[in-house]
Design a protein around this nucleic acid. Structure first.
Lengths: 107, 107
DNA sequence: ATGTTATATAACAGACTATTTATATAATAG
DNA sequence: CTATTATATAAATAGTCTGTTATATAACAT
């Protein structure tokens, strides 16, 4: 599994995106993260493991707590990939622009 | 399933990302897309269906062919979501900058 | 009409995922 | 030391994905 596989498939789950959104507000412990969800703690622990495995979050140990935060480099590889698509799309768009410009010119 | 669910999970598969990369070079028919893969045509057809369902590609009918291309609005929702994370990460980064600046100042 | 090409669909097997309950570990509080 | 709190792991289950083969449909060429 590449990092991209892991990162995209981690983000494909709404619970995990909600966790990321929560962490966007700042560090939180497993219990703090779990509270708003109608789901058991082990389920959340697993989601966190997936997010960590995908390099989207990092965790430190603080006594018995395990606070999580967004990983600094989280979305850089995803960004690079999406840039490729973005560029392709804007090339297509430019081409369309040319076509439209051509049509204008002919009028 | 939200669009984000569909889009991220579509992108989580390396075959599908390869298809998107191929389409970034321009429109292609199902057979053209399938050729480089060691996989049967029905498998590719399914991947295309997933990509279409996620709004990442569009198809038109041209006789018996079904040419595919990247959808113009493909990554906009994904972009909006990632922007949220990006902003959160850069806020954290700024905060770290402040901390480091503070440490400098004290010296 | 018939054979061929391009694509889609169906049925199935195997792998993977998300969740639950039950239990383990490990730090802390009393 | 014991009870409690925070978190992780395991086993079981249900559901979902990916791929295969076999088959259908639909346009095209002859």
């Amino acid at each position: 599994m590449t990092n991209l596989d892991a990162a995209f498939s981690a983000m494909a789950d709404p619970t995990r995106r909600a966790i990321l959104a929560r962490l966007a507000l700042g560090e939180a412990t497993v219990m703090e993260i779990a509270k708003p969800f109608e789901m058991t703690q082990p389920a959340i622990s697993r989601h966190l493991k997936v997010l960590e495995g995908a390099g989207l979050i990092v965790r430190r140990a603080e006594g018995t707590r395990r606070p999580c935060r967004l990983a600094p480099e989280a979305i850089s590889e995803i960004d690079r990939w999406l840039d490729m698509l973005r560029r392709a799309l804007s090339r297509n768009y430019d081409r369309l622009d040319d076509v439209l410009a051509g049509m204008e010119a002919k009028k």
